[in-house]
Simulated assay, not measured.
Amino acid sequence: MTARARVGISGWTYPGWRGDFYPDGLPQRRELEYAAHRLDTIEINGSFYSLQRPTSYRKWAEQTPDGFVFAVKGGRFITHMRRLADPHASLANFFASGILALGERLGPVLWQLPPTLRFDADLAASFLAELPRTTEAAARLAGDHDDKLSGDRVLAETDEDRPIRHAVEVRHESFADDAAREVFAEHDVALVVADTAGRYPKLFDVTADFVYVRLHGDEELYASGYTDSALREWAGRIGAWTEAGLDVFAYFDNDMKGYAPHDAQRLAELLT
């Protein structure tokens, strides 16, 4: 199949976007629907802060058109509190919380590491080995959830077996190393290409069969917009990756001043 590039935004509920990207008078409950008809992918960020519910994932899927894809951000309990240690139980809870309700709209799962977490080959390898690579594997893992989840807060089945891709956004300079690249490549997990106004490492290494890009702002983290020249540079990079047969998922997280959805639409336009 021909490689494809998708461009979207990180989250969709931002009061400052109302009356700008979102038209005046648009009900908040329809903001996802509005964004999903103008972009073909969005990151679900609420899943990073707490376990969501199957009913929420199902509702989000119903509000988006055919062909739309969500990326889902992995829980900070796993990445920031547990710091990837002994992840089986917490991963089981995460995948039992309803992610599989997205069905064919489930795209990559994003794991963002804290800036203080250094590269440890054994820790990274053990975590990556635990990640389910298909929805059937995720359903089996979800069956190991603990008593933090019960009843209608659990979904441990899938309507169809589909592959699951994983991407990891690292924020410590120790990951800019051949040993780290080798571990991620061995497990076919993408190292995120993150543009963070120079605060964190910007890695362009391809370690999986797809590329995951997060654009947080090139001059001011989360706040600055991208010039047309900068967007053309990113379009060139993304075009080169797709020509090499790699799917690309790119998300704008420069949401503070409302640039993200506009930059995403412009980049998508440049890629057509």
Rank of each mutant, 00 (worst) to 15 (best):
118 R>S: 14
122 D>G: 03
125 A>Y: 02
127 F>M: 09
128 L>N: 03
131 L>V: 08
132 P>S: 05
132 P>D: 04
133 R>V: 06
133 R>M: 07
137 A>C: 09
137 A>P: 08
138 A>I: 04
139 A>I: 10
139 A>E: 10
140 R>E: 15
141 L>D: 01
141 L>Q: 01
143 G>R: 11
144 D>N: 13
145 H>D: 11
146 D>R: 06
146 D>M: 10
149 L>G: 03
151 G>P: 12
154 V>F: 08
155 L>M: 08
155 L>T: 08
156 A>N: 15
159 D>F: 00
160 E>Q: 13
162 R>I: 09
162 R>V: 09
163 P>N: 11
169 E>Q: 05
170 V>S: 00
172 H>M: 01
177 D>F: 04
178 D>F: 01
183 V>Q: 01
183 V>P: 01
185 A>F: 07
190 A>C: 14
191 L>R: 00
192 V>P: 00
194 A>Q: 04
196 T>P: 12
198 G>C: 06
202 K>D: 06
202 K>S: 11
205 D>G: 10
205 D>H: 14
207 T>H: 03
210 F>A: 07
212 Y>Q: 10
214 R>T: 08
215 L>C: 08
217 G>S: 09
224 S>T: 09
226 Y>N: 10
231 L>D: 02
231 L>F: 02
232 R>V: 12
232 R>L: 13
234 W>A: 10
245 G>P: 15
